[in-house]
Design a protein around this nucleic acid. Structure first.
Lengths: 336, 336
DNA sequence: TTGAAAGCGCTAACAC
DNA sequence: GTGTTAGCGCTTTCAA
């Protein structure tokens, strides 16, 4: 592998001149520069970014750590990350946040290979994240609340989205509204539950713990929950599921129980995954601004790395997407 | 940021001893090692991987370049990459293969930051890839045929999958089998077309160019194609679509044209994306071994980097997944 | 306009 | 067992 020194020798100049020339520094005479460039090409010279980073003690790489590489709906998020990174001169690399000796967490974050990181992982330990963040490694967490030095937050408004979803059901006249949550320690599930509670409370509807059930954010767990929710004579007239996967599982179980959606039971999900448009009836849900989440996270990191002092948490609003599963005509509107 | 030297000074040892100690080298006396470890912790020392890589002139990082970060069905692929990387001691980082000044292609591959790369991008220029591959940067391309030094291939058997799909339709008695391709220069589309042709030919069924149509691998383009395929009195009794997205668009257009699937027209797709199970009728399709594709790509890279001389291209077989869209009962079986 | 030299943080001979 | 030393390939003063 040809090094800068090789280029310099072959071009009959010093290393420093070669370095300047290849970076198009105007201090180097045009003709010299061209000669150096030509030699570099002939030798197949490629700059060694590692060495460069070491010397200048900084890097343009930022890491995006995801819990589940390739989860179907990171797509938009990564597009946002990509676009903004490009705009800010970063190179974003994505990896899995799993812990371990040769993991990305270790290699990229603990070994100083990136300038900063964006983490979207609802299950990784809070202490893990705060212990890894430092002066030299600011971390932006997505959809989490972590109070620690050098940890910053960009979130979608889950509570607000859940509030909108539940209020939507209330508007359509439903009163026995069930809640299907994810794992109880999940931030997403908790926030969505709180929005649900707030909507009920604001509408003056009593909360009924019997109408609450938990799954694991998977389709199968939603399916199972569908039976539990209607066991023992309980009969919610609507259900707000904390994510679409579970809502879809729920849909399947309701069908099996001979219940029609939305006629017997209305249903609202969360996330707006692609499938929601294809199930029958199409699922009313809450959309998160994934693109902007990614884009804002990078921007946040950029500001931090630029030494900007006053960084505030960002909260992005969510949007209710009304489809068929929540009924069509308001039956006894209580608002709007 | 505390460096190894800082640790050494504070612990009253030399840098090399500190280095050895922190890497748990048994040459260092236990008590010294513990002292050094403690000092390192106190100082919040973190090894600088960049410096290490520069010194040892190698790195454990490999890059996975995808055309479209987060495309819905890279999930399995990345899981395969992840698992095998871990097993082989690599750290895999994923990035977008788009070209550009501060792109991953440039930063990671051209600046010597990774030991090798895996590229899955059906549209990136072949010359781009072969020019970037080198002695020091072996590249494994997925689902492409590139003949160039230091470029290796791992593919799914698209031709074979298409052959299976088409033969399946023939087995069920269909004879006017249309083909809905992707962009004509696409490797995937071409391979799948060839499998289609071979199946027809082997069954002694004449190929009819009028039954062929092209889209862009998107649902919408499949929808549009659905009208073209049935314009001017043409009437295929079955269609093999080169991917599921188009097949699903096609499904929608057939429905709009009052044609029933599979009664009026049978349909087979390719890829086995999740949606295929949810559309109605559920789509018969061809599944690629995505996990294995990822896992084998990493293994291939590992072998190359280990100096293994005889590396051969890998071709993985695909699997026909029979659902409702291709009819239920064979109407006049020609085989099996 | 170009060159000499220092050094980023680390590892690996080699010496003691 | 531990220390000394010489770089890895690059950028960046500072001199010439």
């Amino acid at each position: 592998m040809a090094s800068l020194k090789d280029v310099a020798v072959h071009a009959g100049v010093s290393v420093s001149t070669a370095s300047l020339a290849l970076r198009e520094d105007p201090a180097v005479k045009e003709v010299t520069r061209q000669r150096i460039r030509r030699v570099a090409d002939e030798l197949g010279y490629r700059p060694n970014g590692i060495a460069r980073d070491l010397k200048v003690k900084k890097t343009d790489m930022i890491a995006v750590l995801l819990h589940d590489l390739g989860g179907p709906f990171y797509s938009e998020l990564l597009r946002g990350v990509q676009d903004r990174s490009h705009q800010r001169g970063f190179t974003a690399i994505v990896a899995c946040s799993a812990k371990g000796k040769s993991s990305a967490m270790t290699r990229l974050l603990l070994e100083n290979r990136v300038a900063g990181a964006i983490i979207l992982d609802p299950v990784i330990d809070e202490s893990e994240i705060s212990s890894v963040a430092s002066e030299d490694l600011p971390i932006v967490v997505l959809d989490r609340e972590i109070q620690a030095p050098h940890v910053y937050a960009v979130s979608a408004d889950h509570e607000g989205g859940a509030f909108k979803a539940t209020t939507h059901l209330l508007d359509r006249g439903y009163r026995l509204i069930g809640f299907l949550g994810g794992p109880e320690d999940s931030f997403h599930s908790r926030m969505r539950f709180e929005g649900y509670r707030r909507a009920l409370s604001q509408a003056g509807v009593d909360f009924d713990g019997d109408l609450v059930c938990y799954g694991m954010f998977t389709e199968d767990s939603g399916y199972d929950a569908g039976f539990r929710l209607f066991a023992n004579g309980r009969h919610p007239d609507a259900i707000f599921a904390a994510n679409d996967e579970m809502a879809i599982g729920l849909l399947r179980s309701l069908e099996e129980q001979g219940l029609s959606v939305p006629d017997d039971v209305a249903l609202v999900g969360f996330d707006d995954i692609r499938l929601t448009q294809y199930v029958s009836p199409a699922l009313t849900t809450v959309r998160q601004p994934m693109y902007q989440l990614g884009s804002d996270a990078v921007e946040q990191l950029f500001q931090i790395l630029s030494g900007n002092a006053d960084i505030e948490s960002v909260m992005l609003s969510t949007e209710l997407v009304i489809r068929q599963s929540s009924g069509v005509t308001p039956r006894s509107p209580i608002r709007g």
